[in-house]
Simulated scan of single mutants.
Amino acid sequence: MTAIKETALQQIQGRTYKSLKVETRRTDKTFPLTSPQISAEVGGHLIEKTGAKADMHNPDLICWIKITQKNAYISTEKIQGIGGLPVGVSGKVLVMLSGGIDSPVAAWQMIKRGAKAVFIHFYSYPYTDKASLEKVIELAQILAVSNYRSLVYLVPFAELQQTIVTQTPAPFRVLLYRRMMTRIAERVATLVNAEALVTGESLAQVASQTLTNLRTIEAIADIPILRPLIGEDKAEIIEKAQRIGTFDVSTRPHQDCCSLFVPKHPATRASLAELADAESNLDIDALVETALNNLEKQMVG
């Protein structure tokens, strides 16, 4: 106990306080004193040496003591960690990773809750540059710090987009892109045994993310689409991106496939009937199969 008391005194030196409290927890129940007895003895020593008052309810300073089988740990500060669950205990998800700010944060929030993330990225090279491909691999590497070895599926999407542009009404283009991405992603989810899709969508952030449009996009999916950021605004998402280390990569300029051939006036409240009619000229099964036949994959981390 002498060593514990002296070490506790050293720990509180240099701190500003008028009152203090000692809290003790024992994992080694064979220690000769109980937790309240340790707290009382150490607390009395600290009060005697510093002149501080004891305050059990609202102290200026708390000294924590943890007694284990071989050691005693003493601290006066608690640093908030990330928290969460071990990766994989909550199952596997397929994250639609765009290269922007939002989807990496959505991925991180699912990883934090114990989901193992597999990634899928749609790109429109050669109509866009390769920057989005490079960014997605870099973002997956950052997320692999928590997600460990991570599989990234890359889907060439340019030809499919051209088909949509030439055969469907302009206001529905982006929604039809998203529905086709969802169909393809769902097939890939089956390949990797993922139980849900994950997107970085936030309610009403852009035209395709109104409540009505989100409903019409997910209507063609047979597995859940999880949207961890649905109720967060951009400032909150940016703060998280900065905290997890993806913001600088996400904000490097790149051309996103969904920004290709964007109509001047996109539909903000498309109905299921309107989208079904817009897709009536498309051979959906053939388009999905073509995309899957050209699928590439990379392992990172």
Rank of each mutant, 00 (worst) to 15 (best):
L176C: 03
S146K: 10
P224R: 09
N147I: 04
A221Q: 09
D248S: 11
T190E: 13
V192E: 11
T199G: 09
A189F: 02
A170N: 05
V188E: 00
D256T: 15
K234P: 12
K264Y: 06
N213P: 13
L226A: 10
I230Q: 07
A207L: 05
L160K: 00
S146V: 02
F157I: 07
D222Q: 07
E186C: 09
Q161K: 02
D222T: 10
L160S: 02
A241S: 11
N193G: 09
P228V: 06
L154V: 01
Y153K: 00
P224K: 12
R149N: 13
I220M: 05
M181R: 08
S208N: 04
A196D: 11
T216N: 04
T251N: 09
R183G: 15
Q205L: 07
E236Y: 10
C258D: 11
T168S: 08
V165Q: 10
P263C: 06
M180W: 10
V262F: 06
R183F: 12
R179K: 03
T199E: 08
D233N: 15
N147Y: 08
Q167W: 01
H254A: 14
E236D: 13
L229E: 00
P169N: 13
I217T: 15
Y148G: 00
Q205M: 08
M180N: 01
L143V: 04
Q162H: 14
A241Y: 02
V262I: 14
N213L: 03
A189C: 08
Q255L: 15
T166W: 01
R227T: 05
L214R: 04
G245Q: 02
L175K: 01
T216R: 11
V262G: 04
T210V: 10
M181C: 09
E195Y: 15
E195R: 15
M180G: 03
V188C: 00
I225W: 13
L176Y: 01
T199I: 12
S202M: 07
N147G: 01
C258S: 12
Y148L: 08
G200V: 07
F247Q: 06
I230F: 10
V155K: 00
I184V: 15
E239S: 11
L260D: 05
L151S: 06
E232N: 09
T190I: 04
N147M: 07
L226G: 03
D256A: 14
Q205Y: 01
Q205V: 07
S208A: 03
D222P: 00
R173L: 05
T210A: 07
L211P: 03
A221N: 08
T182I: 14
E232S: 03
Q167D: 00
C257G: 11
K264E: 13
S150P: 01
L197E: 10
E186F: 06
I237N: 08
F261Q: 12
D256E: 15
V152P: 01
M180H: 06
S150I: 03
T251C: 04
V174E: 01
A189R: 01
S146A: 14
V206C: 04
G231T: 10
P169G: 12
I244N: 01
E236M: 14
I230T: 04
D233Q: 04
